[in-house]
Amino acid sequence: MVKRREPKTVLIIEDEADILNFASRVLELEGYRVLQAGDSEEGMRLVRQGGISLVLLDLRLPGRDGWATLKQMKSDPELSAIPIIVFTASARVSQRDRALSMGAADYLVKPLSAASLKKAVVRVLQGER
């Protein structure tokens, strides 16, 4: 049975314009629909509208940071099923462990190649299926 493939939507929450742009472009080129948010509040607003398959989340954000955002999404029954990939410039193992224990699907450290980003997104979305 062949089902017509709808493009999956990825929400990227990232305050650094260059990185937001890079991640968005790579995922668009890979056939995903991309939504962008510069901070946590905007990200939460978009995620509540529904239709989002994956969130790419920066930890250092203006206002409420990525940690609070991760916690909020994972404790919300309606949102907790959406996989979240943390995408950060902090390479600390303790932070990685903390993020994974809080329910993050993966922990990506900047800098990151286009291929690594693509691979991580594909892996998480396939695993979820």
Partner: peptide, 14 residues
Amino acid sequence: LRTPLATIKGYSTM
């Protein structure tokens, strides 16, 4: 250091 490096690495690989 990682933030500008992420830009360089990201765009150059892209």
